[in-house]
Simulated assay, not measured.
Amino acid sequence: MDAVKRQTRRFTAQWAGKDHPCVEQQWRGKLFYFGARSAVVLAVLLLLAWSLTPAAPVVTMSAYNQVSCRDIGAAQGSARATEPLRVFTPVHQLSLPILKGLCAQSAILNHYSDVRVFWQSRSAFVPAHIYSQFYDVMWGRDYALNGMSPSYLDYYQPLLTLPGYDVYWYATAAGFQGNPRDFEQLRVGLLDDPFSQSGYQLPMNQLNSLQIAADNRQIRFYPSRDALGQALLSGEVDVVADTSFSPLSRSAAVRSKVLIAAQVSSGAWYISSRVSSSQTLLAIQKTLSSL
């Protein structure tokens, strides 16, 4: 019996030490089967989790820039309020002045949990913002708002009409006069925003009248007015278009200024119909008129 056991163990050891393709393929097949089944189960679980996730709202602010009273350490709003006062401006330089002014108004903080100022390009402003009245206060021009929604006045009313401004070519060359020969020899900087009257539309209209196309190699586009001004002052371009409110109007580096258009509409501040408190309306109007 012991001899039989020894022989059996010897045979088993010899067999295990050899290659057996059939057995190996069977084990690999089983591993592949269990791995594939596990992957299918995981995919089903992920799909189920995704289907149970709440749908995102039509208007999402996750990609927008914003700043609040809390962010700058200003006074907080009412603990009883659940919604902040939302303000829209396409000019990011105005966001902090607007915010600081509104955060200092007790008539506003008594009705809202906070103040949030959002800034984004005008191209990102869509009709859904009007219909949902996401913003309580917003800047706009009547023709642009009417183009988005002919019934926009059912949702927003003008609160403060802004004064007009002039649009100029600002050049570092002393002899710049804005004629075709000037533009052939100089590099031109414009705002990369087709919705901007002063930084794109009006100067581009003048360039078109001089038969200078937008794809001309002499024309360069910049994402903001700050970048536009820096490009001029650094010598990257020789002439740019901007408003009479521009810091370039006071710069010693600017040696020529040529008018493009006079008294262009600055638009207006609009207030949502949901803002009903007269004290809040007066406080908002006071703050915006002081900018």
Results as ranks from 00 to 15, higher is better:
residue 1 M to Q: 04
residue 1 M to G: 07
residue 1 M to H: 10
residue 2 D to L: 12
residue 3 A to L: 08
residue 5 K to I: 14
residue 8 T to K: 09
residue 9 R to T: 12
residue 11 F to T: 12
residue 20 H to Y: 06
residue 26 Q to P: 02
residue 31 L to Y: 05
residue 36 A to M: 09
residue 37 R to P: 00
residue 37 R to N: 11
residue 39 A to C: 12
residue 39 A to G: 05
residue 43 A to M: 11
residue 48 L to F: 07
residue 49 A to F: 01
residue 50 W to P: 02
residue 53 T to F: 00
residue 54 P to C: 06
residue 58 V to H: 02
residue 63 A to S: 15
residue 63 A to F: 05
residue 64 Y to R: 11
residue 64 Y to N: 09
residue 70 R to E: 13
residue 70 R to Y: 08
residue 70 R to F: 07
residue 71 D to L: 06
residue 72 I to R: 03
residue 72 I to T: 14
residue 74 A to E: 15
residue 74 A to I: 13
residue 75 A to E: 14
residue 75 A to M: 08
residue 79 A to I: 10
residue 80 R to K: 08
residue 90 P to W: 03
residue 92 H to K: 07
residue 93 Q to S: 13
residue 95 S to G: 10
residue 98 I to E: 05
residue 100 K to A: 10
residue 101 G to E: 03
residue 106 S to G: 04
residue 108 I to H: 01
residue 109 L to F: 04
residue 110 N to M: 05
residue 113 S to K: 10
residue 115 V to P: 06
residue 119 W to G: 04
residue 120 Q to K: 04
residue 120 Q to C: 01
residue 122 R to Q: 14
residue 123 S to H: 05
residue 128 A to Y: 03
residue 130 I to T: 08
residue 132 S to C: 02
residue 132 S to Q: 15
residue 133 Q to G: 12
residue 134 F to S: 09
residue 134 F to E: 14
residue 135 Y to S: 05
residue 137 V to K: 00
residue 147 G to I: 04
residue 149 S to R: 05
residue 154 D to V: 09
residue 157 Q to Y: 06
residue 158 P to Q: 12
residue 160 L to S: 11
residue 161 T to N: 11
residue 169 W to M: 11
residue 176 F to S: 08
residue 176 F to G: 06
residue 176 F to V: 12
residue 177 Q to V: 13
residue 183 F to I: 10
residue 185 Q to N: 11
residue 186 L to S: 12
residue 188 V to D: 04
residue 190 L to V: 11
residue 194 P to I: 08
residue 197 Q to R: 12
residue 197 Q to F: 07
residue 198 S to L: 03
residue 199 G to R: 09
residue 200 Y to I: 07
residue 201 Q to Y: 01
residue 208 N to L: 14
residue 212 I to R: 00
residue 215 D to H: 11
residue 215 D to Q: 10
residue 218 Q to K: 09
residue 224 S to G: 04
residue 225 R to C: 00
residue 225 R to T: 08
residue 227 A to Y: 01
residue 229 G to L: 00
residue 233 L to Y: 00
residue 241 A to E: 02
residue 241 A to Q: 03
residue 246 S to M: 07
residue 250 R to W: 08
residue 254 V to H: 03
residue 254 V to P: 08
residue 255 R to K: 15
residue 255 R to H: 13
residue 257 K to A: 12
residue 260 I to R: 05
residue 260 I to Q: 05
residue 264 V to G: 10
residue 268 A to I: 10
residue 272 S to D: 04
residue 279 Q to R: 08
residue 281 L to G: 14
